[in-house]
Design a binder for these strands. Structure first.
Lengths: 172, 172
DNA sequence: ATCCGTGCAAAGTCTTTGCAAATTA
DNA sequence: TAATTTGCAAAGACTTTGCACGGAT
């Protein structure tokens, strides 16, 4: 279930990032490139720490400070996006070729299910318009119980394998 | 523009909190009572620090640790609710007699506008059902520009007074 | 050559925790 | 009386920052 990233996507991302940096008088350093590649390889949400560990395992060494300094840049140029869950922790997710989506979080097993956000965006724009507000984006999250947990109601936590359907789901 | 809290509301809240505590073998201490009252008096969002300062000004002294320990209790019994904005800071808002609402945040002036969340809840339930997910709640936020800021586009930050309409709005 | 970036460690924020003394039920 | 709370300070988790050296244009 690993998200595939084509070499085309990688090139596009690199071009995007490089141009973004150049336009601001910033440099495309090996560290930034390594981070970009690592991020593109990350199937889902991640936080600074996880990225650091993953990189160490592939022998790519960067200081944590560099990660903290680079993530905002990647977010600003639209390669990744910050997402918030209950724990107030800075998480990010790659969004480059991804269709806009929001998340459903199971309060029991912490499983996260993504769903297309177009309807939400439509409603968002309607509501915003009513208040003479110009919507640029939104943050939406449904909290509840996934099918497995609502069926198990009261029983022990079902293990992840028994519920993997065709749905894109993963854990916090 | 201060939200009025009737003595009835206060009594109801106290009863709620007291019962909640009793049911769990916890005690209704003067500190918890002071915090409850202070929270009910807070018109909008607040964070631990603000609460502490507000209380000091009214001569009510409690340790910050007590605040951090009490807020989750008030949230658990439905008197307040945690809300998240961009900065990953623990904010809360009183929700006792309030109609469910979500927020619109102006990325320019940080003004926050509340809006009824019933439509969002409806859409949420539809989406959840499609994924065999049982929705218990949601977190929704529209990010964009408020009317004042979108008109001022590119100019300096409009000051809060010039845009106070009938809308409930306040700042982060 | 100049300005930017990295690493490292120190400093910051916000939040949680350990403990002894003080309270509540 | 027995168990919970509080206040205080120390500890924690996560993030930011200062600085000297190294690297990019």
């Amino acid at each position: 279930m690993t998200k595939e990233v084509s070499s085309q996507d990688i090139e596009a991302a690199e071009a995007l990032f490089r141009d973004f940096l150049r336009d601001r008088g910033l440099k495309y350093t090996p560290e930034r490139r390594m981070l970009l590649l690592e991020v593109l390889n990350t199937p889902q949400h991640f936080e600074a720490e996880q990225l650091l560990i993953a990189m160490r395992q592939s022998g790519k060494r960067v200081a944590k400070a560099t990660i903290y300094r680079t993530l905002p840049l990647l977010a600003e140029c639209g390669i990744i996006k910050q997402v918030q869950f209950e724990d107030n922790l800075a998480r990010y997710e790659p969004i480059l070729g991804q269709a806009p989506h929001d998340h459903m979080v199971c309060g029991q097993c912490r499983r996260i299910i993504e769903f297309d956000s177009s309807e939400v965006a439509t409603l968002r724009d309607e509501i915003a318009a009513r208040h003479r507000f110009v919507a640029a984006g939104h943050r939406f999250q449904i909290i509840g119980l996934c099918s497995a947990c609502s069926e198990a109601e009261g029983k022990e936590r079902p293990d992840a394998t028994q519920v993997q359907g065709e749905e894109l789901s993963y854990e916090l």
